[in-house]
Nucleic acid binder design. Structure first.
Length: 440
RNA sequence: UCCUCAGUAGCUCAAUGGCAGAGCAUCCGGCUGUUAACCGGAGGGUUGUAGGUUCGAGUCCUACCUGAGGAGCCA
């Protein structure tokens, strides 16, 4: 640019409306370029928004016109221009380009691969590192950011203390079949599939705690709801029972949805999300016992029999009967994890809850009251032939001032997928890991 | 692990067993308000791999590879 000293400061596109009538400078990438005779319409993006530039050939220096005309998609540039309100512009403003410097020109013999037309999912996944630049993907990631921040604010403002669990863990907790094994100085270690057991220890120290981090499942699941690496937030609360964490769960989800609605309306608009569905997410959420769920499912035509876990199709049928997430509680203990407290009224039922999101998004939360009695926990570990010595520290929590406690895990990607209304969770994390893809 | 579907130009897709094609992208030209702009032209192919059937295979058969959707399992 000719006279940098006299140039205005750099502006982000999201703030460009505050500079109507003024000259601004942008640092941006070329999103698209349209041409109409002696008229150029470059669209710039800078990560905060899009703005269309306008150049009349007669109104700008010939070398500037030629430079813009030769721009290739995703070339990086510095732009000097004057902001002008224009009813024809989608965002209400356009930029009359005065000058432009090319920072890096994408070569024409190796053009940017993601053209502004439709692409297949394999191609897009192979170019995930570039796909993130699209409006839609950027909007999803901003909603993810908002969800994560809302989760942290919710717990932090409610007296919870963050106590993160390790990612590398020793012997398996629930069998090794779904764990990734890694070499740990000539010993075996595993990538965590849940921070829960450690969160229980933290809750005995801090009362109300949560951990939040990546978890790993080597399940050979290949559906739109599954990743092998996903983020989970897991609150754990001393002295809490099942009812208490069910209430905590519905408060958390309501808070997160309301926060996204309040702060990310423009992103939801880019995603063409029907926000009226999200505006219905208010307290309280419906509660359905497992027994009632079976009755409802059979009435709706499901083949499910009492005693088995809900399948993906069953979850969709059940959740479609409500306009807000439904909490299914007290499953048969036999299909649930060893550490779940039995229901004192019906001892073959576990004091557990799954929260199913609407619109077929499936389970977003799974939680339970934990067994606090040492002997009962020992019995369960032995019944399921789990390695008792690996749980010695976990059993200590029942030896030294054991108290009833409960917690749950919420899968961030499924929540983001539901809030954004995207089909597949692979779009809700920057670089998804699925059973057959670890690139890029 | 199992079931289903797909693989043709950089991308998205056509092509009755009979000459391998279109749109977009790229390059050249045209257009003073375009909204995935439009109009004209050019270049661009080992039809996933290996076999087989046939006068002839992108097309039919077999195996394998890769990807997608789903089941089971899970958040």
């Amino acid at each position: 640019m000719s006279d940098a000293a006299a140039s205005p400061a750099f502006t982000e596109i999201r703030h460009i409306g505050e500079h109507a009538g003024q000259d601004v400078r942008l640092r941006a990438w070329l999103y698209n370029l349209r041409e109409s005779g002696k008229l150029l319409f470059p669209i710039f993006r800078d990560g905060t928004g899009l703005i269309q530039g306008v150049l009349f050939q007669k109104a700008v220096a010939p070398e500037v016109f030629a430079r813009v005309r030769a721009l290739t998609q995703e070339s990086s540039v510095e732009v000097l221009g004057r902001v002008r309100a224009d009813a024809r512009a989608p965002g209400g403003f356009e930029l009359d380009v005065i000058d432009l410097n090319v920072l890096h020109a994408v070569p024409t013999d190796q053009p940017y691969p993601i053209s502004p037309k439709e692409h297949g999912i394999e191609f897009l996944m192979e170019h995930r590192h570039l796909w993130l630049r699209s409006q839609r993907q950027a909007a999803i990631l901003r909603v993810r950011h908002e969800v994560v921040k809302a989760v942290r604010d919710f717990f932090d403002d409610d007296g919870f203390t963050l106590a993160d669990a390790p990612i590398l863990t020793p012997a398996a907790c629930e069998g090794t079949s779904t764990l990734f094994e890694v070499d740990y100085f000539e010993q075996k270690a595993y990538l965590t599939q849940s921070g829960q057991l450690y969160a229980e220890a933290a809750a005995m120290a801090l009362g109300k705690t949560y951990c939040f981090g990546p978890t790993f499942r080597a399940e050979k699941s290949k559906t739109r709801r599954h990743l092998t690496e996903f983020w989970m937030v897991e609150p754990e609360v001393a002295f809490a029972d099942l009812d208490a964490i069910m209430h905590l769960a519905e408060r958390l989800v309501t808070f997160v949805v309301q926060r996204v609605l309040a702060n990310r309306a423009s992103e939801l608009a880019v995603l063409e999300r029907d926000v009226s569905r999200l505006e219905k997410i208010v307290l309280p959420f419906p509660r359905v016992s497992y027994d009632e769920a079976i009755t409802r499912l059979q009435a709706a035509g499901s083949e499910i029999q009492w005693g088995s876990d809900l399948g993906g199709g069953d979850e969709t049928i059940l959740s479609s009967q409500f306009d807000r997430p439904v909490m299914v509680h007290r499953y048969p203990a036999a299909v649930k994890a060893f550490y779940m407290q039995p229901d004192p009224v019906q001892p073959d039922r576990a004091l557990c809850v799954d929260m199913l999101a609407p619109e077929g998004c499936g389970e977003i939360i799974g939680g339970s009251q934990r067994i606090h009695d040492l002997q009962l926990l020992l019995d369960r570990i032995r019944e399921q032939k789990l390695p008792e010595e690996a749980f010695s520290w976990y059993l200590d929590l029942r030896r030294y001032g054991s108290v009833p406690h409960a917690g749950f895990g919420m899968g961030i990607e499924r929540v983001v997928g539901w809030v954004c209304g995207v089909e597949h969770v692979r779009e809700t994390i920057p670089f998804p890991r699925t059973i057959y893809r670890m690139f890029p």
